[in-house]
Design a protein around this nucleic acid. Structure first.
Lengths: 225, 225
DNA sequence: ATGAAAAGTGTTGTATTTACACCATCAATT
DNA sequence: AATTGATGGTGTAAATACAACACTTTTCAT
């Protein structure tokens, strides 16, 4: 059988990536959503998505979509699932791979976001989204929560140096539940890759809070899952 | 912007599914591999794969690939990851979604398997596979092991009624490690959805071993992750 | 009767996880 | 100078989960 024929008898499809972009602010997670100003589904809310282009692999496509929208490229990004229902996009058949990203909401480019008709929406206030994007968000959130329980997902949402209270607030936002302060700090103390910098943050308390940083070199040793 | 144009300026790609089909026999897991008798990579070993067709969603495509090869359609199957590197298939660009499946090796159709030039290979003896299939197997195995630690993956590899020794042997094969018999049975005893049938199996021991079955109704209540 | 082969059964120690409440610090205010 | 308020920081005890470990029971075949 000739090589060309082997491929050509099969159909081709558009390939998309849809990105569940989480940001963190004031103790709450937000999701970056776009109000579409183009068809199909003009006027409705959707995730940040885009088509995979020639010469670009899936992960790169996802990074490009997030970078185009936020100006950020130093982010934690992970593939969640690929959605392939025949009717999922009513326009044409599109297979879409979902990625979730965690971005530092302090660093993103507000102008870029505005120019794309995009908005940060707090998790509890997320509207209905087009196509199967609601399900994508559900899946991504569950996946991220699982990952956060097993590795230090989300530290890039914090400033370079952060207090333990900030870290705890972040984890409470990600996991969607309160955590006991003493137990949390005990657990962190056992992670040698989260280390005291010696600095003190006085912006939030009179007493001042010790600053910590994430040490990637120490972490990469302890690889888990 | 016209709807047609919105899609048509973007490229299309072949979409494939590759299936990591695990079978279980004599206390060991095997993987169903094909020796390709067609180009590209004729003569080399590969996973069972196929192209997604029009009108067929991803999960269905994976089920079809496994059914075509084994004759089995009652199986546990789960999407693992989508591989999208530009050069992953040297022939043309193909995005491939990996699924893993667990099949009852007692039930599969040997003729179908033989007709496809396919072979069961024990896990430790897996040869080098084409493209990125080695990585797919690694990922699928890790994923399956994680899942097996948290839900009753693989019970469909056993007969309808099974002994606890059979179940333990299965889990040892999946997890790749020995399990203490007493601890294992304690854990199973805590799962109300694995219930004694009252039957006794005498084929393997003089004393006879109690038979159990998986109760799906009871399980679907205890949904976890 | 006895030997072989698999089934079945409890306890103890260790590690992990959870629950829980008070004192320390320091700037701003009085 | 004393008080207040807001946040940072700390330890212990109970409960639970997990890991290690060895012997007895049954019954068929000899």
């Amino acid at each position: 059988m000739a090589s060309k024929a082997y491929y050509s008898i099969h159909p081709k499809f558009h390939a998309a990536v849809d990105c569940i972009i989480f940001g963190f602010e004031e103790g709450e997670l937000s999701l970056l959503l776009l109000q579409r100003n183009f068809e199909p589904a003009k006027g409705e809310w959707s995730l940040a998505g885009g088509f995979v282009e020639d010469g670009e692999n899936l992960d790169d496509a996802a990074r490009r979509v997030v970078a185009d929208l936020t100006g950020l490229d130093d982010l934690y990004m992970r593939q969640v699932h690929t959605y392939g229902d025949v009717e999922r996009d009513p326009g044409e058949r599109v297979l879409s791979t979902a990625y979730y990203a965690l971005v530092n909401i302090k660093k993103y480019d507000r102008e870029l976001v505005r120019a794309h008709n995009a908005f940060w929406v707090r998790l509890p206030e997320i509207p209905h989204l087009i196509f199967d994007h609601d399900r994508m968000v559900d899946d991504a959130l569950r996946f991220m929560q699982y990952q956060a329980s097993v590795k230090p997902v989300g530290i890039n949402l914090l400033p370079e140096e952060f207090t333990l209270t900030q870290l705890q607030t972040l984890y409470e936002a990600i996991l969607g539940e309160r955590i006991d302060k003493r137990n949390f700090r005990k657990r962190i103390a056992g992670m040698d890759y989260i280390e005291k910098t010696g600095g003190i943050d006085k912006t939030l308390s009179r007493k001042g809070a010790a600053l910590y940083r994430f040490n990637r070199d120490k972490y990469d040793g302890n690889f888990k899952i």
